[in-house]
Design a protein around this nucleic acid. Structure first.
Lengths: 217, 217
DNA sequence: ATTTAAATTTAGACAAACCTAAAAATAATT
DNA sequence: AATTATTTTTAGGTTTGTCTAAATTTAAAT
């Protein structure tokens, strides 16, 4: 069907596309793909020939409808495998990304539909990101960054923006986890850091932390 | 570590090597890999440079100790994934091969050790083939081909030689499965076909069938 | 022991996905 | 508006793994 590289490009374009309405730039894609701009141009042309993206020279690239569907299938697979790794194989949420990055390319419709069933049709992955269904539909939760809350407001931790192992391990160490209730007790004007109450704990967190935690009020 | 292609060659050499003590011929490898002899020569040189095989021009190829270890790791992964697919995802034994062929290349030590634990350290795959442990050790069962039994002898079906979907579906249709007791009631001199008693059923099977069923007496 | 046949290797090409360096187009700045 | 800086594309090359066709080696047959 599609090569590993093509799939990875589609996924990258999908992720970059949601940050803005404009086309995804060659440089941004090169950065995301850890490659050179010239390589991106080559690949984008190929994807354009296959009608997976819409591309006009110097104008950036957009996913076509079929490109979007393909990207969503890969993301679905990635997130289902992440759930599997955490729920069934005792991986922690900071260990799953690289393995899921490989597993997401396994080509078998049955494998994914059976895995979905085996996991009892999970709606979110271990980082709180939604899992598209077989048709590519998924709910976009109305979530807010913790950094956007005001003193006194409270909500539930429903996701993380940064999913790097470093950040996730920091959260683990401070017993900050999905599903927990967080209340903003105070905000420091000077550096924006917050004093938060998370279940029984109380701690101060920097903006680097608050800008990467999603809360549902 | 190793490329997909390199891994597949090692696996193929391993499987061909056990049929005889001589080196694996270029043509045999080409046949097994569904490619051309010239491509095999190229790859075999590369594997030889990497000390994974021992190769002398025109003399066939042998796995080195490290090549054998690598091959066994891939086979271990393949068979563990087959168990997973059958036991957890309701695949039938004739559906698992192609998917496992992809899954076997996922690179993660933890993934495999956790999968092994999750499956409760299975010793054999759905076709009765032994699963090497993390160190590459596995038991070679003392099994006999059904075609080598004489009238009156009986034993347990412990494996199949041919694992093609066609053969496996034939066995399913005739309720011939791993673990069942088989007794040879009669053998036809003319074509070698056998009348067998398998649990409550009695049926006649051709040599094509009997030569692909392993029995433990 | 030649000759013929089969198996294997070499030589040269190709596609995919990447690269560097140079050219071209767009955006930013004065 | 002209110049400079940045971004993007083009041109040409590399590597991996494949191929075809020709050359070579080994095996088989006369």
């Amino acid at each position: 069907m599609f090569s590993l590289s093509e799939e990875n490009y589609l996924k990258a374009i999908f992720h970059l596309q949601k940050h803005s309405t404009a086309g995804v730039s060659t440089n941004a894609l090169a950065e995301e793909m850890q490659t050179k701009a010239s390589s991106v141009t080559d690949m984008v042309k190929k994807l354009s020939d296959k009608k997976l993206v819409v591309y006009k020279k110097y104008q950036g690239v957009y996913l076509s409808e079929s490109g979007r569907k393909t990207a969503l299938k890969i993301i679905r697979k990635h997130r289902l495998w992440e759930v599997f790794l955490v729920e069934k194989l005792d991986f922690s949420w900071d260990e799953v990304h690289d393995v899921a990055e490989e597993l997401e390319h396994i080509k078998s419709e049955k494998l994914i539909s059976e895995l979905d069933k085996f996991l009892d049709y999970p709606k979110r992955d271990p980082h709180g990101d939604p899992i598209p269904d077989a048709k590519g539909n998924f709910q976009v939760a109305n979530k807010t960054l913790l950094s956007d809350l005001s003193t006194g407001e409270k909500g539930t931790l429903v996701g993380v923006k940064d999913t790097s192992p470093e950040f996730l391990k920091y959260l683990d160490k401070n017993k900050i986890a999905l599903g927990k209730t967080i209340e903003v007790l105070d905000q420091e004007k000077f550096d924006g850091s917050m004093l938060i109450q998370i279940e029984k704990n109380r701690l101060r967190v920097s903006t680097l932390v608050t800008a990467n935690i999603y809360i549902k009020i």
